[in-house]
Simulated scan of single mutants.
Amino acid sequence: MAQPMRPRTRPAVSLFATDGRSHPLQDALVTVTVVLGILAFVTAMFHHLHLISSWAGLVGIMTGAYGQYVSVTTRERFPLIVGLGASALGFFLGMAHGGLFGGVIN
């Protein structure tokens, strides 16, 4: 007797995963790192926004580093490196313009 064919359902695949599995933690870390990297990089271009750029850069570096530690695929690692670079650049320029507490604590 012939077995009835069941339709194949594909598992939910994330945008950054190539192994056929979903990685919600890694996707969230990629998104947070890239957003914080863009924020830190853009605000670092303005001298008076050094608090935002330095703190956003610092948090972006930490989330990006943890994201690199737990990442599984290359598609996850590539935007993490881009976000880490932007976060680091924003952090260092924010530190040069006044630092994490510059002008707040005398």
Rank of each mutant, 00 (worst) to 15 (best):
A2Q: 12
A2C: 00
Q3V: 13
Q3M: 10
P4M: 09
P4G: 01
P4T: 10
P4L: 11
P4K: 13
P4C: 00
R6G: 10
R6K: 12
P7D: 12
R8E: 14
R8P: 11
R10F: 14
R10V: 14
R10W: 11
A12S: 07
A12G: 05
V13E: 13
V13R: 14
V13H: 07
S14V: 01
S14K: 02
L15W: 11
F16A: 13
F16L: 14
A17D: 11
T18H: 09
T18G: 11
D19M: 04
G20V: 06
R21P: 00
R21N: 10
H23C: 05
P24F: 09
P24Q: 04
L25A: 13
Q26I: 14
A28Q: 13
L29R: 10
V30G: 02
V30R: 08
T31D: 03
V32Q: 11
V32P: 01
V32C: 12
V32W: 12
T33D: 10
T33W: 07
T33C: 14
V35T: 12
V35I: 15
L36K: 05
G37I: 08
I38R: 00
A40T: 08
A40I: 06
F41T: 06
F41R: 07
F41I: 01
V42S: 05
V42E: 05
V42H: 02
V42Y: 10
T43P: 09
T43S: 15
T43E: 10
A44I: 03
F46Y: 14
F46S: 12
F46K: 13
H47A: 13
H48C: 00
L49R: 09
L49A: 13
L51M: 12
I52R: 01
I52D: 01
S53H: 08
S54G: 06
W55L: 08
G57W: 08
G60W: 05
M62T: 11
T63H: 09
T63R: 00
T63Q: 01
G64A: 06
G64V: 07
G64F: 09
A65H: 02
A65S: 15
Y66N: 02
Y66T: 10
Y66I: 15
G67Y: 08
Q68C: 12
Q68H: 14
Y69W: 15
V70P: 02
V70T: 14
T73I: 00
R75D: 09
R75H: 13
R75Y: 11
E76D: 05
R77H: 04
F78Q: 12
P79Y: 06
L80A: 04
I81A: 11
I81E: 01
V82I: 15
G83Q: 04
L84Q: 04
L84V: 02
G85F: 10
G85Q: 01
A86Q: 09
A86D: 03
S87Y: 02
A88M: 11
A88R: 03
L89V: 14
G90R: 02
F91K: 03
F92A: 12
F92M: 10
L93Y: 07
L93W: 12
L93K: 09
G94A: 03
M95C: 07
M95S: 04
A96Y: 08
A96G: 08
H97F: 08
G99Y: 06
G99K: 04
G99I: 02
L100N: 04
F101L: 15
G103K: 02
V104E: 05
V104D: 01
V104Q: 06
I105G: 00
I105D: 01
N106C: 00
N106R: 13
N106W: 10
